[in-house]
Design a protein around this nucleic acid. Structure first.
Length: 274
DNA sequence: CGAGGTACCTGACAGC
DNA sequence: TGCTGTCAGGTACCTC
């Protein structure tokens, strides 16, 4: 489900709802989702630990526990985190339950079971998927235009594939790459080394603008909800090309096209994007 | 290293 | 109604 703005929204919700709670128990209904360490060790390590804070890096959710332990969650395609009263029955797709000390559960729902959780200490960042290999945060204040331009040195692949690579830049997924490329007027199959200085600047500005706007609207929800209380985001109403195949471009009226690029369906305006 | 394909899963929807 | 095929917001792993 989620890209950077959705994960950001979820993390903000988690800060309000689980900070200072103690994890009393963990119930794992499908151990495939526990990537590290082994299920029983995971449960043992999480038990009776206090949640100090919740943070985000790329699309990873980082739940900071006392004693420098961290629960890392990646939602992948269909993952959701919800707060439910402990007394409420589980959803069909609830696979991991963190039972808290305030009569609430933090539940990890995951239709397609692609999501993963990790439990690490301060020396185990390399155990949490590709968390320690992520590229820069696009909204980091220190991430300036010149840093963005530097990333493009010697990169020859198409721009869509590059923006989707989490070790190139963190947090962008299929929605926001398509929307950012439209905003910047760049076709998704352009080779990265053909972008001129002006186009790189437009793309840098577009990514910032789109992500900030999506965060403001609490992300994009299609059939799913986004935030921890089950409320929808609203950015889906602001999308200009993503899932607008055969609809008129909001800028020029041309028909929006969809093509498979970098293995993902890519939406673009053949007139506005060059 | 880069690029491209496939695997992992379930459900929704289109077309017959 | 029900079958089949395709598609889905992501990433890991394999091969060339």
């Amino acid at each position: 489900m989620p890209e950077l703005p959705e994960v950001h929204t979820i993390v903000e919700g988690l800060k309000k709802s689980v900070r200072n709670c103690i994890i009393k128990n963990v119930i794992v209904k499908d151990e495939r989702l526990v990537a590290y360490p082994e299920k029983n060790i995971f449960i043992k390590k999480a038990k009776n630990k206090k949640i100090i804070d919740v943070q985000r890096r790329g699309k990873y959710i980082i739940i900071c526990l006392e004693k420098n332990n961290f629960i890392i969650i990646h939602l992948r395609m269909t993952g959701k985190l919800v707060i439910k009263k402990t007394s409420k029955p589980y959803d069909k797709h609830t696979h991991i339950i963190f039972r808290l000390d305030n009569k609430n559960d933090l539940r990890f729902n995951n239709i397609r079971k692609f999501g993963r959780v990790y439990m690490i200490n301060e020396n185990e960042w390399d155990k949490a998927g590709s968390l320690n290999k992520l590229g820069p945060e696009p909204l980091d204040e220190d991430f300036q235009l010149q840093d963005f331009k530097k990333l493009f040195k010697n990169r020859k692949t198409n721009i869509k594939a590059l923006l989707l690579k989490q070790d190139f830049i963190a947090g962008l997924g299929n929605i926001y790459t398509d929307e950012s490329l439209f905003e910047a007027g760049i076709l998704p199959d352009r080779k990265a080394d053909t972008l001129d200085e002006q186009e790189l600047e437009k793309l840098y500005q577009a990514i910032q603008k789109i992500l900030k706007k999506a965060i403001k609207f609490c992300g994009t929800s299609f059939s799913d909800y986004v935030n921890i209380q089950g409320e929808s985001g609203a950015f889906q109403d602001k999308l200009k090309v993503y899932q607008k195949t055969k609809k008129p471009c909001p800028e020029c009226g041309s028909i929006i096209k969809k093509e498979k690029i970098a293995g993902r369906s890519s939406h673009f305006c053949p007139e506005c994007q060059k």
